[in-house]
């Protein structure tokens, strides 16, 4: 493998890791060539044209704009090439995740809380199967954090007030560092953890061994009743509120004439800021739950509503 020959470099273990490493190598070679040429010329001129050295200095004031145009064009073309290359890999890294195995991450000062849909939860660790893409849905309870796995060449900020999703795939089982990369206060450097990539069968075993309390969606259902959501959003309700069965993933027409897809972000926003996007044909009656539900509870509600969609 060519990547093992880069000094001090541990090859990335994600599918895009190879592309990032190749890009890095390209950048290194381009820079080495540019620097090599520059240092060679500097050294050559310093020795050859040192004061007192008798060499030909005729026409030393002669100059031509050809030089300016050539090196400007050459730099611009090289830069454009690197720009296109870097951008194409970036779009791969941040492509929209497929909705497969979803894992929720709540970041707070100073820990990572990871919750699997079956209810298994872990602190400062993320267990995942090898060679199977997982989709992370991340939220922050307080300040900005950043989810960074150097071995996967992936990083994404976790900004409070919104969901961020990210697709992770690991090609090799093992233990990898998880860092918080955005400064978040006192114990920022302690907000680290481990990504444990397991063989798929092993991962299935691990999930069953974790003895979860109950699946997150079920807990979300309990919350849905406890918070009084079911009082309006149910078939027998006297209040004219949209039914949520089957809504997840489907288009919702809004009162302003536009349409949105009811994804995690839309459901989260509708709980916290119900009046920002009103479904067409309904009165803006719903109170905001801003400050009344934690990120942990929110993701359970989202999962519950999602589970309604799967029922026939």
């Amino acid at each position: 493998m060519w990547r093992q020959w880069i000094p001090f470099w541990h090859p990335g273990v994600s599918p895009e890791g190879g592309d990032v490493d190749l890009l890095f190598t390209g950048l290194l070679i381009a820079s080495a060539l540019a620097l090599g040429l520059l240092f060679f010329l500097l050294a050559l001129f310093c020795v050859r044209y040192r004061a007192g050295n008798e060499v030909d200095r005729e026409n030393h004031e002669a100059k031509s704009w050809y030089w300016e145009v050539s090196w400007t064009t050459a730099s611009l073309l090289c830069f454009l090439g690197l720009f296109v290359w870097g951008a194409s890999v970036y779009f791969e890294l941040y492509r929209k995740p497929l909705d497969e195995l979803t894992v929720f991450v709540v970041a707070k000062q100073w820990m990572w809380k990871v919750q699997h849909p079956g209810g298994q939860s872990e602190i400062n660790a993320l267990h995942m199967p090898v060679n199977r893409p997982i989709r992370l849905v991340m939220a922050s309870q307080d300040v900005i954090h950043s989810f960074f796995i150097p071995a996967l060449r992936l990083k994404h900020d976790v900004v409070p007030g919104r969901y961020q999703d990210l697709e992770l795939t690991a090609r090799k089982a093992g233990h990898y560092h998880l860092f918080c990369a955005e400064y978040c206060g006192t114990a920022h450097s302690g907000m680290t953890g481990e990504i444990v990539v397991m063989e798929q069968a092993e991962f299935a075993n691990w999930l069953t061994q974790q003895a979860p309390a109950s699946p997150l969606a079920d807990e979300g259902g309990a919350l849905f009743r406890q918070l009084g959501c079911s009082g309006c959003h149910s078939a027998g309700s006297k209040i004219h509120a949209p039914l949520l069965e089957g809504i997840y993933g489907s288009p919702v027409p809004l009162s302003d004439g536009s349409t949105v897809i009811a994804d995690d972000k839309y459901i989260r926003d509708s709980i916290l800021l119900p009046r920002s996007q009103i479904a067409a044909g309904y009165e803006p009656l719903m109170p905001s739950f801003e400050g009344k539900v934690t990120e942990d509870q929110l993701l359970r509600l989202v999962l519950y509503i999602k589970s309604l969609g799967r029922q026939p």
Partner: peptide, 15 residues
Amino acid sequence: LFLACLAFDVHATDT
């Protein structure tokens, strides 16, 4: 330029 290069910046930013 390494950091202006989008995909590498994802890895290297904040390091």
